[in-house]
Amino acid sequence: MNIFRLAGDMTHLVSVLVLLLKIHTIKSCAGISLKTQELYALVFTTRYLDLFTDYISLYNTVMKLIFLGSSFSIVWYIRRHKIVRRSYDKDQDTFRHYFIVLPCLVLALLIHHKFTFKEVMWTFSLYLEAVAILPQLVLLQRTRNIDNLTGQYVFLLGAYRALYILNWIYRHYTEPHYVHWITWIAGIVQTLLYADFFYYYFQSWKNNVKLQLPA
């Protein structure tokens, strides 16, 4: 464990807890894409298949349970909670799941480390996580209003993967392990997807104006 990875995990943890807390306290999911949340639940499910088979550390297991629990809770709130679901803007959140899931699945079947179920699922989760934010970014473009909790959520989500890239650089130079090129590429693509959001987020923060994404 190095400081970059710990900072990355904590940033990721805060991002999902901020979102869960927002939905739980104000009982609203305005501006949140259910599609992206469902994709994240799928990412964690396919990423953590080894949850009960390979014990790595208490930290690892606890964090996996938190990520699984929080992502499914968020999906449950938006889908089932009698108050929260009313604030879900399903007419705007229309990104088709299969436009993202199918290409990632095909890519994982074509490009992977080993052709085993767990390995292909793990690779699928890497590709899926890289693009799972797209429905949320599309929704933000459409609704154009970004309340600052949603802005913070997306910012923290992007920051966590950027910190992971620093972690992979650190591990590459300091550990006898190697970071596979698939992990590098999926992580870099994911961070680049946030890059334009980061630009507008910093602009609004610097000029102290409300965050507006160009149409």
């Binding site: 990875r5 995990d9 990721h12 990423r47 080894d50 390979d54 790595i56 550390s57 690892n60 964090m63 996996k64 990520f67 480390h113 793990w122 992971y164 972690n167 992979w168 591990r171 550990e175 006898p176 392990h177 190697y178 970071v179 596979h180 992990t183």
Partner: peptide, 10 residues
């Protein structure tokens, strides 16, 4: 031959 990392990552 290095063995692969990142499987201990989240």
């Amino acid at each position: 031959e290095k063995d692969e990392a990142t499987k201990d990552e989240l």
